[in-house]
Every structure is written in C-alpha cells, then in structure tokens.
C-alpha cells in the first residue's frame, strides 16, 4: 500500500482509539449498572473496529480472527450481564 493510504489508515486508527476515551468516561460516570454495561458494550465494539484497522495497518489477514472472536465473546458477555441484571441469575 502506498504511504498516503498507510497514513490515512493510521489516522483512522488513532481516531478510533481516541473514541474509546468518551466510552470509558461513560463507564466511569455511569449512574447505574445498565449505563455502565452499555459503556462496556460500546468499548468492545470500538475495539473490534480497532482490531480490524490493525489488521490493515499490519497487513496480515490473521489478525481479523481476533476481531471475530472478540465479537462473539463480547456479545455473550453483554447478554449474560444484562440477563443477570434483570433476573438475578444467568442460567
């Protein structure tokens, strides 16, 4: 990839990393559990985007599998915590 494309990719990567700060702010400033859980969900979604961008910057298609695994785990985790919050049990 040409330098300009690489530069643009790194800029997009930095923007996504910077976007995680307001999401982390929402997790710390969350008044109740649901807001904090939603902040965590947002952070993991942004993290998946960052991993995909990293796969581009590092130019290796193996890194994308990490993103797929994180997507699966973050979904299961979010639904488990949400179920625990609403019904007090997970299974």
């Amino acid at each position: 990839m040409s330098d300009a494309a690489n530069l643009a990719l790194q800029f997009a990567l930095y923007v996504m990393i910077l976007l995680m700060l307001p999401a982390a702010y929402r997790v710390f400033r969350g008044i109740n559990h649901a807001e904090r859980l939603q902040g965590i969900d947002l952070i993991t979604t942004l993290l998946i985007g960052i991993i995909v961008l990293l796969a581009l910057v590092l130019n290796s298609s193996f890194v994308v599998d990490i993103g797929i695994a994180l997507a699966a785990f973050s979904f299961v985790g979010t639904v488990a915590i949400a179920r625990y919050l609403s019904e007090g049990r997970v299974f």
Binding site: N32, H33, A34, E35, L37, Q38, D41, T45, I48, I68, A71, A72, F75, T78, V79, I81, A82, R83, L85, S86, E87
Partner: peptide, 21 residues
Amino acid sequence: LFMVITAPVASHAIASAAYHL
C-alpha cells in the same frame, strides 16, 4: 453479518435490563 445480527440483540438485552432495574 455477525455484528449486524448480534448488535440489536445486545442492545435489546441492555434495554430490558435497564427497564427491569
């Protein structure tokens, strides 16, 4: 495909948890 299917389900789970709270 995975994200487009699971993201609404996760949001719905959070919303129902918030409502139960």
